[in-house]
Design a protein around this nucleic acid. Structure first.
Lengths: 204, 204
DNA sequence: AAGTGTTTGTGCTCACATTCACAAGTAAAA
DNA sequence: TTTTACTTGTGAATGTGAGCACAAACACTT
């Protein structure tokens, strides 16, 4: 396929594919067809083929996709082949839960720093990670941490985001229900759990 | 506007609009233009106008959208005008955090039941809610609880989803990284936090 | 009454995403 | 070697959503 801009939706699905391939490897399956994969993931098989083809040929015709090397290639595409460290800002209930969340490790993601501006929390440990004062966010640049999870109260979101951007953070997973203004250099992904739940009654 | 099917993306944005209008009311602002609203939310103003127009005329030309009545109408559209009860399945760290999450109340959403299959957890309380045995999920029908948040380990997700569907649940917020098969009558919204974080390095 | 400022509601166009349909390629059997 | 049965990769078609531009409508001034 000649070069085309990669659709954002395709990128959003890549972690799904990576997880599936990783899981298949633990099941000792060497090869899988787009049809079988589609069934597992609840997608259409042409979509999977098209998504993967944006990054060049993954599979072999007549056979399917090689599980191990496909996983490796997606990891490279997503820059997850080397472990990525992330900072958590906001050591509330949700944030605390995320530090212990086991799902990140599959992607080589690790929460390596936690910040909060409550002096009572600073110094405590969540699992192996010590809570630091929020003023120390600026040290992220030196520590080569370029990702952050924002889990602070709504009224602190905008200023925390600005601080993160100033500290060289390149990507923020925003769990607050606020639109973070500014920072064109920072990729923000918004996840608003309350809104998501709020959509459901519409479909009843 | 003559009748057209309402885009799914529009429905997904409605909770955002509802939150914005609710917030504006606390700021004693009676009226807001699509342009101002767009700026707050980080959207384009025609998009807001089009979204709202799918449900009939909301605003007045030359003036803008009336904050209070718009909030009320969106609440009706989303069926959030009467309080909605939701069940949480899985009283792990993430689930526990959600019970106390203050963001739901703005939408009239309340976690009114918590289930877990760990006998050590059953009977304990999370805030005001007592953890029940997962076998009691079937009582949800009688209790008129039609929404659920699924926050169980991946290997328990599929069977829990089936149980929920059997208990008359109509909507599931799926926090597990699994595709839930079957149940065409149940609307499922998937939120995979690890995947979302995993996308970010791609954009660095 | 007429004019000026705004702002909504919407047809239209364009961009993006999904799905189809099939040629090209592979493997294994005949 | 030929045939058969699969499966990928992809141009083209279809479907869906976003954004523009402007008429219609309102408020306020002159």
């Amino acid at each position: 396929m000649k070069y085309r801009k990669i659709p954002e939706e395709t990128v959003r699905r890549l972690p799904m594919y990576l997880r599936a391939f990783s899981l298949l490897r633990t099941e000792d399956i060497q090869t899988i067809s787009s049809r079988q994969l589609a069934e597992r993931l609840g997608l259409n098989s042409p979509q999977i083929r098209k998504d993967l083809s944006y990054f060049g040929a993954f599979g072999t015709r007549g056979v399917g996709y090689p599980v191990e090397s496909s996983a490796r290639r997606i990891r490279e595409i997503l820059k997850l082949n080397t472990p990525q460290k992330a900072a958590l800002v906001g050591a509330g209930r949700l944030g605390t839960a995320l530090v212990a969340y086991p799902g990140f490790s599959l992607f080589g993601l690790e929460i390596a720093a936690v910040f909060d501006n409550n002096p009572k929390k600073v110094g405590r440990k969540i699992g192996p990670v010590k809570i630091e004062d929020a003023r120390r966010i600026s040290t992220l640049r030196k520590r080569t941490i370029r990702l952050a999870i924002l889990a602070v109260p709504a009224d602190a979101a905008q200023s925390a985001a600005k601080t993160l951007a100033g500290a060289g953070v390149k990507g923020i997973l925003n769990l607050t229900p606020c639109h973070l203004q500014g920072n064109r250099r920072v990729k923000v992904i918004d996840v608003d759990l309350a809104s998501q739940l709020g959509i459901l009654p519409y479909y009843m």
